[in-house]
């Protein structure tokens, strides 16, 4: 049994120092957002083998606290750019669930009109601004968005989600350099889940602290417990405040674990690239159970309230799938639209 990448955070104790700064309703809202993403992902996973969603999926089960904690620090006009693992980012930023599921069912009323797919979920009304399915691809785009905000004197900030493997891409280093040079209003949010598809970090990088990579560009670099939604919120707020006040970019590393395979339904740990025991160890600090345990211990959540929440979410998710399956498919003429802008 090998646990190559153990959890090193404080577990539930880590909530104590942040909880006082939030109302009970706020805390419940954060939990509900995480639970919502989890249940949506589980339903996508459950239905995936029915082959009605003919699209790749990159589930975020286990990584809900990063999306929810980060987006809770953002306003609607703040922009979020992301990678191929978009579901959590999209939902946490306020993206429309129905439009997401329509997209995943390749319907014309999908959030990208059936031309983006699950790796390209966008909802510009809420600042879910764009994604790239090429690792690192969205990073310079986000820097450009931040440059535009700076040039126009707008006060919104830009956050770009990246993974540990993105730190190996040359363009990510180029983007850090430029962001630091221009002091762009940008937050690099790195979800370090230790694996790129099935390749562990240790086969890809020398033993180092990922923060040193960003720090070498004179960018403030912090690490936050990626399973602790309140810690993520707090660090993102600090970074966003710095960016908004002209203090330039921040790099946040959040160690976190994906409980499922890189792509598709189910976990693939049994194929041998990582030990099942490693996943199980991280499941003991599941961001949802950790937080619900904390809320219950504090008397803010009980079984009855959880059941009400679950029931409402189940109904919302069932409705959204129903709509997606009943939605119209594109016609041939749709293929030729939007190749060029007018």
């Amino acid at each position: 049994m090998t646990i190559r990448y153990p959890y090193t955070g404080e577990g539930a104790r880590g909530f104590d120092r942040f909880a006082q700064s939030h109302s009970g309703a706020k805390l419940l809202g954060l939990y509900r957002s995480m639970l919502r993403i989890r249940r949506i992902e589980e339903e996508i996973e459950r239905r995936y083998h029915q082959d009605q969603m003919k699209t790749p999926i990159h589930l975020v089960i286990g990584q809900e606290a990063t999306s929810v904690g980060c987006c809770a620090a953002l306003g609607e006009t703040d922009l979020l750019y992301s990678s191929h693992r978009t579901h959590g980012n999209y939902l946490a930023k306020g993206g429309d669930l129905k439009a997401m599921l329509c997209e995943m069912h390749c319907r014309i009323n999908g959030c990208a009109g059936s031309r983006g797919g699950s790796m390209h979920l966008i909802d510009k009304r809420v600042g879910m601004a764009g994604t790239s399915a090429i690792v690192g691809g969205a990073v310079p785009i986000a820097a450009g968005a931040a440059l535009a905000a700076q040039m126009k004197g707008e006060d919104h900030v830009v956050v770009v989600f990246l993974g540990d493997s993105t730190t190996e891409e040359g363009v990510a280093s180029e983007s850090l350099n430029f962001a630091a040079l221009k002091q762009l209003p940008l937050v690099f949010f790195c979800e370090n889940n230790f694996y790129s598809v099935q390749s562990p970090l240790a086969t890809r990088q020398p033993a180092r602290d990922l923060r040193t990579w960003a720090a070498s560009y004179a960018i403030p670099a912090v690490r936050v417990d990626g399973v602790n939604v309140l810690a993520v919120l707090e660090e993102t707020q600090t970074a966003v405040a710095r960016a908004r006040s002209g203090g330039g970019p921040t790099f946040i590393e959040a160690p976190v674990y994906r409980f499922r395979a890189h792509g598709g339904a189910g976990d693939d740990s049994r194929t041998g690239y990582r030990d099942v025991a490693e996943r199980e160890a991280w499941e003991r600090v599941d961001p949802l159970t950790l937080f619900s345990g904390f809320l219950m211990a504090g008397g803010m959540l009980d079984e009855r309230a959880t059941a009400v929440m679950e029931e409402a979410l189940a109904a919302e998710i069932a409705d959204a799938f129903e709509l997606a399956l009943a939605s119209p498919i594109p016609v041939e003429a749709d293929l030729y639209r939007h190749v060029y802008a007018d």
Partner: peptide
């Protein structure tokens, strides 16, 4: 590559 992306991102915004 970085500056091409920065240009695209600025253009998109």
């Amino acid at each position: 590559e970085g500056m091409m992306g920065v240009s695209a991102g600025a253009a998109m915004n």
